[in-house]
Design a protein around this nucleic acid. Structure first.
Lengths: 171, 171
DNA sequence: CGTCTTGGTCTGTTCAACAGACCAATCGGA
DNA sequence: TCCGATTGGTCTGTTGAACAGACCAAGACG
């Protein structure tokens, strides 16, 4: 493990989790993977991260079993594994906390439970069926707290349109 | 904001959250605050973090409104604000993901909803009342995945005993 | 066949984390 | 009351990670 990411000696599951997804950029990469981003260049376009660091982060997430690198017609696609998809409750909880502390007009992004056609609540639960749905059953769209600026590139524009989580934006 | 913590240009609540609690050590400090740690030296003893960095982290968490610094009989106590307590679902979700990916024998730490006398489930919900309880209503104790090594210091020993979250370990 | 895009690697610089020295104020015990 | 330990820091020199940007090989595309 890279230095600076090691919380050794901590018998704590939070420390173990942060060793994997606690580095700068890691959780934003996972977020974009939930939104359907799969390609090196698209991650880079979205985040403005340096290429060397992006290479390392994607590699360490693959090594940790969060992402899988899958050859796909000339280029590679990075997609979430089941373990990566299990990060959804944590990602959702952090987004909602960010909303609560920085977005007075409400959530920047909403998530609808497709089978029930209802938005999940702040704890991620569907008010109709009472379950806490996995990401694959959710559709996302901008919420009342979303910024009004026009998207800066076609990729971000596509990510603003309502779409199902985990559905790749490109083939 | 310090360089290296800035995700500017991201109209995303996750990025906003990570600007506050995404730096190295920040979320572990919040975790220990939930467990009842309040004092500079105790945070340091628990984490092995350098003093200069601990000073900066505590300061930035206070500035962000996550912690409050409260004079208390000769020394100061750092305690969670309501905004900081609202991080509980995110901290809990990350702990459970860490359990799931690194702890084959189950959770390292369990949380019991005191009014209902039942352990919360993996999504943080109480199986009896159906609510997602705030941290103040929870008691924690070691779970089946906890390490068997004897605690290395009295502080960690006290944190292993069953106790209510947010209850300060010292006056 | 030349150009563009993709998906990287490599280099030099900057900045944060680290270990450890140092220090002032306070507390506790003899 | 005095002395040593503890607390809660600051400061310094070193190391390592992130950064911008140059460079490059392979394939797509016209």
């Amino acid at each position: 493990m890279a230095l600076g990411t090691d919380y050794s000696g901590q018998d704590c599951s939070l420390a173990k989790a942060l060793e994997v997804v606690g580095e700068r950029w890691s959780l934003l990469l996972v977020r974009d993977a939930f939104l359907g981003v799969t390609r090196f260049t698209d991650f880079r376009r979205r985040l403005g991260i340096s290429k060397a660091v992006l290479t390392r982060r994607l590699g360490s997430l693959v090594e940790a079993g969060v992402l899988e690198r899958r050859p796909q017609g000339g280029h590679d696609a990075y997609v979430l594994t089941p373990s990566g998809e299990a990060l959804w409750p944590a990602v959702h909880a952090l987004m909602r906390w960010g909303d609560a502390t920085t977005s007075p007009r409400g959530s920047r992004r909403l998530f609808r439970h497709l089978p029930c056609d209802a938005d999940v609540d702040v704890s991620g639960r569907c008010p109709v069926c009472g379950a806490t749905p996995p990401a694959a059953e959710l559709e996302t769209r901008p919420g009342p707290g979303a910024g009004a600026d026009p998207p800066t590139n076609p990729l971000s524009a596509r990510l603003r349109e309502p779409h199902r989580l985990l559905a790749p934006l490109r083939e």
